[in-house]
Design a protein around this nucleic acid. Structure first.
Lengths: 130, 130
DNA sequence: AGTTGTACCATTAGTACACACGGTACATAT
DNA sequence: ATATGTACCGTGTGTACTAATGGTACAACT
């Protein structure tokens, strides 16, 4: 499989990686069970930082598109094809849209919404992760 | 009624103004129908900018704690006492907390939530005001 | 020894926003 | 003329976040 990263693109590098791997799964270029290059290996190939690749892998595993087996490496998840079409992001946006619309109807300023949002997100953060 | 503004406080000036006026209403120091100083007047007295006072007045009117009658000045709203105990901000935070908690349970990253939030808020902005 | 994913320390550049400020202008009224 | 609230143009400072980079270290396995 081929991965092309555009440094000059507005979309973040880790996002490009996530999208391209999902596409490859959807198109059947990589099958469930197939091994993926190691984080360090891929970072070296694409000439980017380990952390950036690790971030992409982390998100892909969160979505159950890939499976990391510790020291044994990373593999395509059995249900990858089904899972990579599930758009968690779209659901989040839909929910937020409803909530925000309700706020606006109540006369709440966008500025106020932003501040309250930042408050809630930061305050109740047990573990923030990346 | 006395208004004390603390320049060195962490809470914004307009917020201090809003709170103090609400407090004065709650304590009965000012009654419904009572006139408030004009924006320019109060700004001059408190040694702050017109816009800052105007912002406080705008929010107070949004909450129906005060009533502006154009060129005739600004007055305490008839239902001020009831309205100034209604905490719109607390409601917003409660809603957001529920929404965000649901996201986190679904495994959505705080970072992703922030991005989605910014997207939704900016995209569907009809009129943003302040 | 070498590799796996992962966790911790950190910095840099860029962006976005809140807050407060200044000036100017308007319609509406006394 | 003078005063009201309101609207527009803008500036500056501080904060907070993202994205990406670097280095070091760990446990678990081949």
């Amino acid at each position: 499989m081929q991965i092309t990263i555009d440094i000059d693109s507005a979309t973040p590098l880790f996002s490009q990686l996530v999208m391209q791997i999902k596409q490859a799964v959807e198109r059947g270029l990589i099958q469930p069970g197939d091994p993926l290059p190691s984080i360090r290996q891929l970072a070296n190939d694409l000439d980017m930082n380990n952390k950036t690749v690790a971030k992409a892998y982390r998100l892909l595993e969160r979505d159950s598109v890939i499976e990391t087996k510790g020291y044994r490496g990373t593999f395509i998840h059995p249900d990858a094809r089904a899972n990579c079409t599930v758009d968690l992001n779209a659901w989040v946006k839909k929910q937020l849209n409803e909530t925000i619309s309700a706020f606006r109807k109540a006369g709440v300023t966008d500025s106020e919404i932003r501040i309250a949002f930042a408050d809630v997100l930061n305050q109740s953060t047990g573990g923030s992760h990346d």
